[in-house]
C-alpha cells in the first residue's frame, strides 16, 4: 500500500452548464478527498481550466485521473508533477496590528515579498502569492499576532516550458 500524498491535476473542460457540477459531483461519488478546486476562463472562450488538488494513494490518484477523463465535458486531464510545474496560490490575510506589532508584521510581509493592500487602526491586510508551503510559513509566523481572518484561492498550476495543456487544432 502506498501512502497518501497530495497532488495537483489540471483539467480543461468545455464551457457547458453543469460541467463544474459534474466534476465536483465525481468527488463525492467516488469518495475522493478534495483539497482545493479552482476554475477560471482561458484564452479559448470555449473551455475553462480547473486545477484540483487532492490527497490519496497511487491507486486513488490513478482512478481520479481515469474517472475525470471519462467525463464528456472534459477535454484534457493532466497530473502536474511538482518538479515541472509552476504552482501558485493567492492569500489575503487580515492580521491584528496594533502599535507594537505593526512593524513586525510589515517586516514579515516584506521578507515574504507580499503586498500590504489595506490598513486600519487595528488591522492590516496582506496579499501574498506563492506555493502553498510559503503561504503556510507566513501564516505560522504571524499567527501569534492574531490572524483575524484569511482567504486562500487554492492552487493554480501551469507546466514549465513552452508545452501547453490544451491546444485547439
Amino acid at each position: 500500500m502506498s501512502s497518501d500524498q497530495q497532488f495537483a491535476v489540471s483539467i480543461i473542460v468545455s464551457n457547458q452548464s453543469g460541467a463544474l457540477t459534474r466534476i465536483s459531483s465525481l468527488f463525492s461519488q467516488r469518495n475522493f478527498n478534495i483539497d482545493s478546486f479552482t476554475c477560471g476562463v482561458t484564452n479559448n472562450p470555449e473551455v475553462s481550466r480547473m486545477t484540483i488538488t487532492a490527497t490519496g494513494d497511487a491507486n486513488k490518484k490513478e482512478q481520479l485521473l481515469k474517472q475525470i477523463s471519462k467525463l464528456y465535458d472534459v477535454k484534457k486531464v493532466e497530473l502536474m508533477t511538482p518538479e515541472n510545474t509552476i504552482l501558485r496560490e493567492l492569500l489575503i490575510a487580515k492580521v491584528n496590528a496594533t502599535g507594537e506589532s505593526l512593524q513586525t508584521i510589515l517586516d514579515a510581509a516584506n521578507v515574504f515579498r507580499s503586498k500590504v493592500v489595506d490598513m486600519s487602526p487595528e488591522s492590516v491586510c496582506i496579499e501574498m502569492t506563492g506555493e502553498s508551503s510559503k503561504l503556510n510559513a507566513f501564516l505560522t509566523y504571524i499567527a501569534p499576532y492574531g490572524i483575524l481572518e484569511y482567504c486562500r484561492t487554492g492552487l493554480v498550476a501551469v507546466e514549465r516550458g513552452s508545452k501547453c495543456l490544451y491546444v485547439v487544432d
Binding site: 452548464s17 453543469g18 457540477t21 459534474r22 459531483s25 461519488q29 467525463l71 464528456y72
Partner: peptide
C-alpha cells in the same frame, strides 16, 4: 439535470 448527474453516463439540458 442535477439529479441525473451521478446516475447517467451524461446528461444534457
Amino acid at each position: 439535470f442535477g439529479l441525473s448527474i451521478p446516475v447517467t453516463k451524461h446528461s444534457f439540458r
